[in-house]
């Protein structure tokens, strides 16, 4: 299970990083979102992978999963969600204000070339 989990997380992170390095705002936003998914999965696994383990202490149970990463990942998901929403709106604002969805403003660079 560890190998599969690690492969999936690594692949997600690699795809996210690739997209985040693209030149247009939409792939960048999607890339950052994928990256945050990968990070959440990674964070979830930092306490070790367990199946069917109880997270809260109860009587008569001796097999536990580490509850702290679960709490951390919940926080990270909430924060990541808000950040994604913000960056989507910002990308639309970039499109509206600059009339292009390039991350680097092309017109400005060509203007500097001329001067």
């Amino acid at each position: 299970m560890e190998a599969l989990y690690a492969t999936v997380t690594g692949f997600l992170a690699a795809s996210g990083l690739y997209l985040a390095l693209r030149g247009r705002t939409f792939p960048v936003v999607v890339g950052l979102t994928l990256l945050s998914y990968a990070v959440n999965l990674f964070l979830f696994s930092t306490g070790g992978l367990t199946t069917n383990g109880a997270a809260v202490i109860q009587e008569g149970v001796s097999y536990y999963a580490d509850p702290l990463p679960q709490a951390l990942v919940l926080t990270a998901i909430v924060i990541g969600f808000a950040m994604t929403a913000f960056s989507v709106i910002l990308a639309m604002r970039v499109r509206g204000d600059l009339g292009s969805d390039q991350v680097n403003d092309q017109r400005e660079e060509s203007k500097e070339d001329k001067s």
Binding site: L32, V39, F42, I79, M83, L90, V103
Partner: peptide
């Protein structure tokens, strides 16, 4: 603003990985 946000989002992702480790 977009540059700043994108860079810091990537930074936050790395922060979380570091914390996880």
């Amino acid at each position: 603003g977009f540059h700043y946000v994108a860079l810091n989002l990537a930074g936050s992702a790395m922060f979380l990985i570091a914390l996880g480790v």
